[in-house]
């Protein structure tokens, strides 16, 4: 099973290099589809089927279509940069080193002492009703109060992403169509 994981990771690296090297954006979009298929199967082997489900639906399905429709509005080729600068390489190296350094603190994969394997703190269940002035639902208390800022940030990110996509994909003639449709709806 380890060999399959190594092969998948090697394929992921090859795909990433191909994405960076290719200058034809049409092919790059297809390679991102391949990339998300690969990463989804890797996540599935790591026993995270929910993340793999999301990756397959969003990465391979929706984002491919979104990028294609964005390409229809912009251009099909990427300009080849004249000079090679070392700053992007430096930034990527520093970011990668920071991420690898961050994983050093994490418990080993499948370790019995990982926080996931230890029973969650029962004090949430005992305290939440008194903390929330009698709210009986622990899930609501966790999502809306204990992790309130987290939930607020998530909804803000989703809203911003939706607005950005709508702004990018908007076209002037479609606006006219929509206003005409609205007028038609008013009269009917």
């Amino acid at each position: 099973m380890n060999l399959i994981v190594f092969a998948l990771l090697a394929l992921l690296a090859i795909t990433a290099v191909a994405i960076a090297k290719l200058r034809e954006l049409w092919a790059v979009i297809m390679f991102t589809g391949i990339y998300s298929f690969l990463s989804a199967s890797w996540m599935m082997i790591l026993d995270a089927p929910d993340v793999a489900f999301t990756e397959a639906a969003v990465g391979a399905g929706i984002s491919t279509v979104l990028m294609l429709s964005t390409m229809a509005l912009t251009g099909k080729a990427e300009e080849i940069p004249r000079k090679k600068s070392l700053v992007p390489l430096f930034v990527v190296l520093v970011t990668g080193a920071t991420l690898v350094y961050g994983t050093l603190d994490m418990p080993h994969f499948g370790s019995p002492n990982a926080p996931v394997q230890v029973y969650p703190d029962p004090s949430f269940v005992e305290r939440s009703e008194a903390d929330m002035h009698g709210l009986p639902n622990v899930v609501t208390a966790l999502l809306a109060s204990y992790r309130g800022y987290d939930t607020l940030g998530e909804t803000t990110v989703v809203l911003t992403a939706g607005i950005a996509v709508l702004l990018i994909l908007r076209r002037d003639d479609e606006e006219k169509d929509e206003s005409a449709q609205l007028a038609g709806n008013k009269t009917s």
Binding site: G33, F53, A57, T64, V65, L68, S69
Partner: peptide
């Protein structure tokens, strides 16, 4: 079940790609 979802996604992506190739737009 995931494998089924992947094949559905594959089909939708293919239709979108080919449609884009032929008409150069989705509308």
């Amino acid at each position: 079940d995931l494998a089924l979802l992947y094949s559905l996604m594959n089909f939708i992506g293919m239709v979108a790609l080919l449609r884009f190739t032929q008409y150069n737009s989705f509308s």
